[in-house]
Design a protein around this nucleic acid. Structure first.
Lengths: 98, 98
DNA sequence: TTTATACTTCTAGTCTAATGGAAATATAGG
DNA sequence: CCTATATTTCCATTAGACTAGAAGTATAAA
């Protein structure tokens, strides 16, 4: 994983509403949960939520699957693990290669 | 580690200049490196660098030790590991406790 | 085919971050 | 003391993020 993408993901995760969205998605498991459920859980306006979810999708942390009228948000754990692996290998030790 | 602090640290790391500062500090080891060395490495203005370093210090990711006129910036790896542990335990698995 | 539901996009206001020049502060050396 | 170096603080500007209401789109149901 390159630093540019890692930075984008870190900055998306570094926002209270968005981290909460991601955690709800993780908790919801493979099938994810509807945007509406996130909204009632977090209590922000629909447009604001949509905006944050869009940003998470843009950096690959969330994926969406439509089921009729409902759009389910699914956490992409691989993307999160990539971020963690980047932090581990590039930001915690003196012995990385350039 | 609580979510609020984790978010602050993530958002600080989610910035190109600041992540580079942190990585330089990690690379520099226990004694860290001077603000001036960071400046010549990254090529931003002194005031901008000082601002970013201040933010990293504020969330505990960087510590500073003065040596005469020189201020050395040292990476706080424990703080980074706390962030990673938070991501691991709270943001990657369904089985966390609330 | 009309109506309801679920969500997004548009638009606009407000706030905060990022940037760097200039002035200020801290320390060291002559 | 006076000067040089290292860094910060102050200040102003610019850009981008956050927020939410209103209008628009997609899908389903009656």
């Amino acid at each position: 994983m390159n630093q540019e993408l890692a930075i984008k993901r870190l900055s998306e995760l570094g926002h209270s509403t968005r981290l909460s969205i991601f955690r709800l998605a993780v908790k919801a498991g493979d099938k994810g949960l509807p945007v509406g459920a996130i909204q009632s859980e977090l209590g922000a306006s629909a447009s604001t939520l949509s905006h944050h979810i869009h940003r998470l999708v843009a950096v690959g942390l969330i994926e969406q699957q439509r089921d009729g009228r409902i759009l389910n948000c699914v956490a992409n754990l691989d993307a999160m693990r990539e971020v963690m692996a980047f932090l581990e290998s590039e930001c915690c030790t003196q012995l990385y290669f350039e």
